[in-house]
Amino acid sequence: MSVGNSPSEDRPSVGHALAQARIAAGLSIDEVSTSTRVRVPILQAIEQDDFSRCGGDVYARGHIRTLARAVGVDPEPLVEQYAAEHVGETPKVAVAPMYEAQKIRSEPRRANWTAAMIAAIVAVIGFVGYTVATSGGDSGKTTADSGTPTPSATTPSTSPSPQRNGADPKPNPSNSAIAAAPPGKVTVKISAEGTSWVQATDHNGKQLFQGSLKKDQSETFTDDKKIKLVVGNAGAVKLFVNGKDLGAAGTDGQVVRLTYTPGDPTQG
Rank of each mutant, 00 (worst) to 15 (best):
I104F: 15
S2Y: 06
V40F: 00
K170E: 13
I125N: 07
R109H: 14
P182F: 13
Q102P: 00
V87P: 00
E85S: 11
S8G: 12
A101Q: 10
V122Q: 00
K238Q: 09
R53F: 12
S6P: 13
A111C: 01
T251R: 10
T220C: 03
S28F: 08
I64N: 08
D168P: 03
I121S: 13
T259D: 13
V87Q: 00
K215R: 15
S196L: 04
T131D: 05
G72L: 02
Q81L: 12
A179P: 05
A200L: 02
A70C: 08
S159T: 14
E9V: 15
S106R: 12
V186Q: 06
S176Q: 06
A119H: 12
W197D: 14
S191R: 05
S106A: 14
P156H: 03
D74W: 01
R11E: 09
K185I: 00
T131F: 02
A123I: 13
V255R: 15
V71R: 03
P262G: 06
A133K: 02
T134L: 10
T143R: 14
T201K: 11
V198F: 05
V95E: 08
T150G: 06
A111N: 11
Q267Y: 00
V71I: 11
S2I: 14
I29F: 06
E89Y: 12
P149W: 12
T134P: 01
A200V: 03
E85K: 04
Q199E: 15
I178C: 04
S2C: 04
A177I: 12
T201N: 09
I178M: 08
I23K: 15
G62C: 09
E219S: 10
H16C: 02
K189V: 03
S196T: 12
F221R: 02
G55I: 11
E100A: 09
V231M: 12
T36A: 04
N233F: 06
R53N: 11
I104N: 15
A249W: 02
P12W: 00
R164V: 15
V73W: 03
P183I: 14
A120M: 11
M98T: 11
A96L: 13
G263F: 01
D224R: 05
E219W: 03
R110Q: 13
P156I: 11
T148D: 11
T154M: 05
V237L: 06
A200M: 03
G26C: 07
G247Y: 04
A115G: 13
E9H: 04
A181R: 09
P151M: 00
T158D: 08
L67H: 05
Y59P: 01
I118M: 08
K206V: 15
M1A: 09
G232V: 02
A101R: 08
D245P: 01
A167T: 13
